[in-house]
Amino acid sequence: MKKRQFAVIGLGTFGSSVARELASKNAQVLAIDTVEEKVKDITPYITQAVVADATEEKVLRSLGISDIDCAIVAIGQSMESSIMITLLLKELGVKSIIVKSVSDLHSKIVAKLGADRVIFPEYEMAKKLAESLVSPNILEEIELSQEFNIVEMVAPKNFWGKSIRESEIRANFKVDVIAIKRHSPTITDEGQSDIKEEIAIAPGGEFEIRENDIMVLVGKETDLDHLKEI
């Protein structure tokens, strides 16, 4: 299978992390930044890193950007540069463009220019943090669509010792259990105590929910909210 080719433009914390993660998953990664030191730092980890100004069309052309499967514009400091680069990438026919946004206005502009996906990490993290502070039993929440979410939560006390069927979670809350995670004590090869995580995927109706279990649930956001309150 042909390796997918990515370009990451802007090597701040976000951009360099994306570039390194992609490379660790065997993708071909071209990284671009105007700061030599940032390019030097990432060079050992990815396919190619270049010092270049991506706001110049001829630079992008010379790097063969049109052949890239997906470009990630990760410029946080200059909204103007981010917008210009998005426009150029679109004009040069890059198949998929993802832009890291710094504000609502930035998101709207790049969306109008044809960005395929706009991400706003600060906002997304803030939302997650607020949710985890308000509902400490919620460990993770992933938005599947505007209506449906996946939630990872500590099993509520009312469910302890009951099978999934007995808990009547589906009948009463209209959510499905897609996995149950359980931590078990163990001993390492060096004789130290530790905990290992076991996971039951798509557990059947007879599967018993125990104290300290973590349930991974899928359902409508409104239904999941009811469950968080019990």
Partner: peptide, 12 residues
């Protein structure tokens, strides 16, 4: 202390 940490982690 480490083992007490494990117990608390197990209990979320």
């Amino acid at each position: 202390y480490y083992n007490l940490g494990l117990i608390h982690e197990n209990r979320n």
